[in-house]
Write a protein that binds this DNA or RNA. Structure first.
Lengths: 399, 399
DNA sequence: GCCACTTAGTAAATAGATAAAACTAAGAGG
DNA sequence: CCTCTTAGTTTTATCTATTTACTAAGTGGC
C-alpha cells in the first residue's frame, strides 16, 4: 500500500516567480514566435510581469528574440523563440538489443545520436559502456558550446516511482537495479538533473512534450517490441504516473485470454503471449540471436507467419481498445520494433480498433492513432524531454 | 481529437494566498488536531503565514479551535479542527434502481440521507424528482443553520470531461443528457458549486478524499453493479481524469474474451458480458423487475447459480489484475451492489487477484483491496466530496 | 517561588513579487 | 503630419510572505 504524508502544494513569492517563468517558457516552447503581448494574454499575466520574466529568461539563455511580427495597426511585437544554442539534454535508452543515445536541444531537435548494438549483459557492464558512449557523445562537435542540463535514461521494465529502482527487466535478466547509481559512478563529473524511467513512459512523454502547435489533451504511447508497454500523459502535466510499484502501463501483462498460454511472468493468457517480440519468436521458431524483422522478411509469404501476425495484430487491436476504455486518451501513438512488421501485423490491429472503438458511445469520432515507423530514438529523446521538464518545473536554479 | 490550447499554470499574489490557504485547510482536513506550528512544519510555510491564514479560515467558518495540546517543555499548541457546523455539501446519485441523496459535512460525515427506489424514467422527470427530494433534504432539521457549498451528482455512465454532458447511460436508456441543466431548472434558488460525474469516479474520489490519517498515494474504486465502472485518483490531486470522451474507467467494456458473447454495446467479449448485474440476470433468467439480490438469495444453492457467480467472479478477478497492470494503484476498493452477492462471487475474484498480482515482480507485497459491503451512499457522498474539493481548490471566494 | 529553557503564536517591519498606471516606441492609415 | 492602435518599459502601488522581535504559556531544576 504505502501512503507517505504528502501535503498539498504551498509556496512563497519565489515559488510564484518560478511558476510564472516556467509558464512563459512553456508557452514559447509550445508556440514558437509568440510575442510578449501574446504571452500576457495566454498566461493571464500583465505585460509588466511578462516583460521582466522574459528579460531574465533571455539573460539565462532559455530564449532568444526573433524577428518583428507584422503590424496590424500598431507597434509590431517581437517574436520570441527558444534559444537552441545554449542548453542541451542527454537521453539514452537501454534496450534488449542495444543502447541508443541522443543529445537534443530545448525543442527536441537531435544534435547528435548513437546506436550501439549489443546483447544483454550485466547492469554494471552496461552502465560502464553507456557511460563511455555518453562521454564520447558529449565531446562530439555538434555539442560544442552547449551547456548540458542533465541525463535521462529509459529502461525496458517497470521503474519504482520514488526510489529510482528498475524493478525488473525480464528481457535483460535484470532485477532491482539502481541503474542511475551505476551510471553516475562512471560519469562522476557530469552534473545537472538525472532521472530514469520505463521506456514506454519516456517515449510517451517525449511524443507529448516535444510537440508544438496543437497539443492533445492526453496521449497514450504503446511500445510494441520484445515486450509490450505503455505510458500515458495527461493534463499538460510535467510528470507521468508510474503507479505504486512502477507497474502502471504494463499492458503486456493484462490478461486477454483466461486460461491461455503461460507467460514468462507465470500467469496465463497475458497479452504478451499473443503479441510481443518474444511470443512471435516462440511461435515461429526464431532464436534470440537472429533479428526478428530480418528473420521474418523472407518468410512473410508463409501461411504460419501470416496467421501468427494476424492473431498478434488482433490482440494488439484489443489492447488498443482496452486502453480506449480505461484511459481514453485523445491520441494514441504506436511505436516499437514490431511496427516494422508492417501491414500483416498492423492492419488487423488498426481495423479492429477502428471498428470497435465507437460502439459504446455510438459516435463517429475516431481517436487519432499515429504509427511511428522508426522509433529508434523515441524513448531516448523522451527521457531527455523528461529531464528538460524536470528542470523547467522543478527546483532548479537555472530558471 | 481535441486539443484546446491549455497553457501551464501561472498566478498572481491572490492565487498564491489561495494556494496556501487551501494547503492549510487540506492539512487539517487530513489530520484533525494539528496546531499552527505543525502546519508550518508540514506545509513549509512560516509561522506568520500560517497564523494569518488560519485566522481567516477561522473567521470564514472553515475551522474551529480545539483543546490545548500536551506540552513537552514549552507553550502548548492549540489543536485546529474543521468547523463541522458551518458548511454542508449535497451529493446525489442517480442509479438504475433509484436515487440516493446525502448531505455531509466538511469531513464527510453524513448529516442526512435519503434513498428513493424507482424505475428508470426520463431525464426530465428524474431531474424534477431529484430536485424535489433535494429540496426536502435541505429542509431537514439536521441541516438547520448550515451554509450549503453546492451540489454534486453521480451518474451511471460516461460524463464528457469538459461540457458536463452525460454521454450515455445504457441502463437508464439515456443519451447526451445535460443533467445539471435539467436539475438547475427545478432548483433555481440553489447556488454554490454544481458538478456531475460518473458514479464510479465520484465514489473513487470520495473514498480517497474523506479519508483521514494515512492516505494512499493512489486508489482505484471498482463499482460492480448493473454495469462495471472504475475511477482512479492519484497524486493527491483535487480532480480526477475522465478521459477524452469520458470513457476513462469504462473497464466493463474492456475485452476479456475475444469472440465471446455480444455486449449491449455491440462488441463481443466485453467484461460486462461475464460480470455485471445485467449479464448475471441474463444468464439466470432474472427479470429487470425483480431485485437481483432478492431473486438470487433463495437460489444460491443451485449449481447454475454457483457456476455463473464463480465465472463472474473469475472475470472480476481478471479485471482487478488488469487494473493492477495498467494503473497499479496503491489501494483497490471494490463496491457496488454485486458485492452483496458475497463469497460465491467475491472469493474467486479475490483469490485470483491475490494469486496473480505478484507474479511479474516476484514480490510478496500485496496491494490492499478493501471491499465495501454497503456502498449505498458511497457515490453520492463522493460527488459531495468533489464539490468540496472544487470549492477548496477552485476559484471560489469562500476561502 | 524563582529562573532558565523551550515551544506556540502574534505583531511590526522588511523584502520581493505582481499589478496598475503612465509613458515611450513603432507602425497603419487618412 | 496627425490620430489611432498595439507593444513594450518604467515607475509606483499593492499585496503577500518573510524576518525579526516580542509575548504567551508551559516544563523542569534549584
Amino acid at each position: 500500500m504505502s501512503t507517505s504524508f504528502r501535503p498539498h502544494r504551498s509556496g512563497d513569492l519565489h515559488f510564484l516567480k518560478r511558476l510564472n517563468r516556467s509558464a512563459i517558457l512553456e508557452l514559447i516552447r509550445r508556440s514558437p514566435g509568440l510575442t510578449r503581448a501574446d504571452i500576457a494574454t495566454h498566461a493571464q499575466l500583465t505585460k509588466a510581469t511578462v516583460g521582466t520574466g522574459v528579460q531574465s529568461l533571455l539573460k539565462q539563455g532559455w530564449l532568444r528574440e526573433g524577428e518583428l511580427q507584422k503590424s496590424s495597426g500598431g507597434r509590431p511585437g517581437r517574436a520570441l523563440h527558444l534559444d537552441e544554442q545554449h542548453f542541451a539534454i542527454l537521453g539514452a535508452e537501454v534496450g534488449v538489443h542495444g543502447l541508443r543515445l541522443v543529445a537534443c536541444t530545448l525543442s527536441g531537435q537531435v544534435l547528435a545520436s548513437h546506436h550501439e548494438r549489443l546483447s544483454p549483459s550485466s547492469p554494471e557492464m552496461t552502465a560502464e559502456l553507456l557511460a563511455n558512449l555518453l562521454q564520447t557523445l558529449t565531446q562530439s562537435p555538434a555539442l560544442e558550446g552547449y551547456c548540458l542540463l542533465g541525463i535521462g535514461v529509459a529502461l525496458p521494465g517497470p521503474v519504482a516511482p520514488k526510489d529510482a529502482v528498475l524493478r525488473m527487466a525480464p528481457n535483460l535478466g535484470w532485477k532491482d537495479v539502481r541503474f542511475l547509481d551505476l551510471l553516475r559512478h562512471h560519469l562522476p563529473q557530469q552534473d545537472g538533473a538525472w532521472l530514469m524511467d520505463n521506456e514506454a513512459k519516456s517515449a510517451a512523454f517525449g511524443e507529448f512534450y516535444f510537440r508544438t502547435g496543437q497539443v492533445p489533451d492526453s496521449l497514450v504511447y504503446v511500445s510494441a517490441g520484445t515486450g509490450i508497454g505503455s505510458g500515458m500523459i495527461e493534463g499538460n502535466q510535467p510528470l507521468l504516473s508510474r503507479g505504486f510499484q512502477g507497474l502502471a502501463g504494463e499492458i503486456g501483462h493484462t490478461v486477454l485470454q483466461p486460461g491461455g498460454l503461460y507467460c514468462h511472468c507465470g500467469n496465463r493468457g497475458c497479452a504478451e503471449t499473443l503479441v510481443s517480440g518474444w511470443s512471435i519468436r516462440a511461435a515461429l521458431g526464431i532464436s534470440e540471436e537472429e533479428g526478428l524483422i530480418e528473420a521474418l522478411q523472407p518468410r512473410m509469404h508463409e501461411e504460419s507467419v501470416q496467421l501468427t501476425l494476424r492473431r498478434a495484430g488482433e490482440a494488439l487491436g484489443i489492447l488498443l481498445l482496452n486502453l480506449h476504455h480505461t484511459q481514453n486518451p485523445s491520441e494514441l501513438v504506436l511505436g516499437g520494433s514490431l511496427v516494422q512488421l508492417g501491414a500483416p501485423l498492423l492492419d488487423p490491429a488498426l481495423s479492429y480498433f477502428a471498428a470497435h472503438q465507437n460502439r459504446l458511445l455510438g459516435t463517429t469520432q475516431q481517436t487519432p492513432l499515429r504509427v511511428i515507423e522508426d522509433s529508434t530514438f523515441v524513448a531516448a529523446r523522451g527521457a531527455a524531454a523528461q529531464v528538460l521538464a524536470s528542470v523547467i518545473h522543478g527546483p532548479s536554479d537555472l530558471i
